[in-house]
């Protein structure tokens, strides 16, 4: 069973605020915000910190090289990717 997307977004918001060293305001994080340049503007260091934090939060493994710019298009797209990964990795 898939985790609800809203729940994933809430948990990812916590990860973004707690695990990345880049200063981000909680009120700026919403489903449609881009994670890269025109949105939260996470740099490469912050992205890696976010990925490591998300792995820990959801107890999954994310492949650095499989993650592309498209995954970070919006906060919602990365949440959906993690939703799929959680479901697939729990099933296996």
């Amino acid at each position: 069973m898939k985790l609800p997307i809203k729940q994933i977004e809430e948990r990812l918001k916590k990860v973004l605020l707690e695990c990345t060293t880049q200063p981000i305001k909680a009120e700026d994080i919403h489903s449609d915000i881009a994670l890269l340049e025109q949105g939260l503007a996470l740099d490469s260091v912050a992205l890696l910190e976010f990925i490591v934090g998300a792995e820990e939060e959801f107890n999954i493994l994310l492949d650095d090289s499989a993650l592309t710019v498209e995954h970070f298009q919006t906060f919602n797209t990365i949440a959906r990717y993690i939703q799929t990964q959680v479901a697939e990795q729990r099933a296996s």
Partner: peptide
């Protein structure tokens, strides 16, 4: 620091 935080299969 990142390697130490990374879990592996």
């Amino acid at each position: 620091s990142l390697l130490a935080d990374t879990r592996t299969r």
